[in-house]
């Protein structure tokens, strides 16, 4: 039993087993209350569908569609750029409300400065400019009247 004597192998192994059993338990124990459409859980996504949008079109269709039609969707600022990845391995924290200081600021620093000088310090951009559903974003670039149909 040489393996057991080395606690640096043992500790991660125990953590892995515990985490694994937690998610296994979570996904098998409460079958009666599982949601439709949310069959795939974070961390179990097949590799060819690992793009967040592929699943969230089905699981959170409204949020996904709002993003798709928004400015961020149009210019392909994808989910993980602001919300991070569920595995939490990246630099962007996995959260529903991205931090102004670490996420929004990367592109919108000039706008944030302008807003702060106009209206004082607010804790969240999202209070006024809802990331997905604000009219500022919703249907962006779709309002142009130049969309004619050409055969």
């Amino acid at each position: 039993m040489t393996v057991l004597r080395n606690k640096w192998i043992l500790i991660p192994a125990v953590v892995l087993v515990l985490l694994g059993s937690y998610f296994l338990f979570l996904n098998t124990a409460f079958t009666g209350t599982r949601c439709e459409g949310a069959r795939v859980k974070h961390g179990q996504v097949p590799e060819d569908q690992s793009d967040c949008y592929t699943c969230h079109k089905k699981t959170t269709p409204k949020a996904a569609q709002d993003w798709y039609e928004s400015k961020h969707g149009m210019i392909l600022v994808k989910c993980y750029v602001c919300h991070g990845q569920p595995d939490g391995k990246g630099a962007v924290p996995f959260t529903a409300t991205p931090s102004v200081a670490t996420v929004c600021q990367r592109c919108h620093a000039p706008a944030i400065d302008l807003m702060q000088s106009k209206f004082g310090v607010r804790d969240q951009c999202e209070t006024c400019h809802m990331f997905h559903t604000s009219s500022l974003h919703h249907g962006a670039y779709g309002k142009s009247e130049s969309k004619e149909k050409f055969e």
Binding site: L76, K78, A91, V92, R106, A109
Partner: peptide, 24 residues
């Protein structure tokens, strides 16, 4: 630890997905 757009360059502070994730 972080990268943000330069407001004085032609991109006016904007970055794309890859640029925003450069630190890693």
């Amino acid at each position: 630890v972080m990268v943000k757009g330069d407001p004085n360059n032609h991109n006016r502070g904007m970055l794309c997905l890859k640029g925003a994730l450069l630190p890693s």
